[in-house]
């Protein structure tokens, strides 16, 4: 058993390669809960908080691409420049746990845990984010849809870590909404993120907590694109919004658990989709 606090990405990757039972520690907001609740043993921990490459983000204006380091905390996405670039991400960040959790929790950690209730994940999916991975063997990038494999399962290899997430800035509208049975600090019962891309005239919607992993509603997206002029974002009929919500709800695959029922989740996610669309479009 050991704890390592590398200060560079190369050092971190070397440790991942060398240590047999390595466990990655980002903000600790998932990992330490498991330790405190005796859910897993502590082996060789690589703490990433001092790896400077992971703590930064940058905006490449020539490609309209923003790359956010896996170690950037949610608090940093709530306000300021990142929030302006990605309002939906800011809205999602604001719902992550408590202010204390947002000061520690990271997008990389959310991806590492890969819970279907991960608050940041629907936004990343709706923004068509790319997950950039690295190991001592090299780097690779995966569309987020290929990175998330199932409930708490992702495409990370044992010796690999999430370095950053890249997303295009979009012109249009983006939003996020999450249902929980308390007004703050609550695990999502159902969530949705909608992106309306006015340049391409396309819509993308991703749902949280209503399936084994984050769900993209491609059929509802297609339907909306053919029934509504997303580029204009004007004159949205109530009927269109309702139908969109219904179609989104049909693509959800929720289950019953102690936080809610499948029936409610299916209903709620449809309401969220409808409302997000109405928010994004002038009626």
């Amino acid at each position: 058993m050991s704890i390592h606090i590398p200060t560079s990405l190369d050092d971190a990757l070397a440790l991942l390669h060398e240590l047999p039972q390595v466990q990655l520690l980002a903000g600790g907001t998932d990992f330490m809960v498991e330790v405190n609740f005796n859910k897993h043993d502590v082996h060789d921990v690589v703490a990433l908080r001092r790896v400077t490459e992971l703590q930064q983000w940058h905006h490449d204006e020539t490609t309209n691409t923003v790359t956010i380091g896996a170690g950037v905390v949610y608090a940093e996405m709530e306000h300021g420049e990142l929030a302006t670039l990605f309002p939906a991400l800011a809205e999602a960040a604001r719902t992550v746990g408590s202010p204390q959790i947002r000061a520690a929790g990271t997008l990389g950690g959310n991806l590492g845990t890969c819970s279907p209730a991960g608050d940041g994940l629907p936004v990343l999916f709706a923004l068509d984010a790319v997950v950039n991975l690295a190991s001592h063997r090299g780097t690779r990038s995966l569309p987020i849809g290929e990175f998330m494999l199932g409930p708490k399962r992702n495409a990370l290899a044992q010796d690999e870590l999430v370095v950053s997430i890249s997303m295009k800035t979009n012109s249009g509208w983006q939003g996020y909404a999450k249902v929980g049975t308390r007004n703050a600090m609550v695990i999502s019962v159902a969530s949705a993120s909608l992106v309306l891309d006015t340049v391409s005239g396309t819509a993308r919607i991703a749902l949280g907590s209503v399936g084994p992993t984050i769900i993209r509603c491609t059929q509802a997206e297609q339907w909306l694109q053919t029934h509504y002029d997303i580029s204009a974002r004007k004159d949205l009929d109530e009927a269109i919004a309702t139908e969109f919500g219904l179609r989104v709800s049909q693509e959800s695959r929720p289950i019953d658990d102690h936080r809610s029922t499948a029936q409610y989740r299916r209903h709620a996610v449809g309401v969220l989709a409808k409302r997000l669309l109405q928010r994004g479009c002038v009626q």
Binding site: E91, R94, K178, G180, N183, A184, S188, L272, R275, R279
Partner: peptide
């Protein structure tokens, strides 16, 4: 927005 039901989840607008 935080005074509405749903709070930080931003689920509702005034009309709901």
């Amino acid at each position: 927005e935080l005074s509405l039901p749903g709070g930080s989840g931003r689920t509702a607008d005034r009309s709901h």
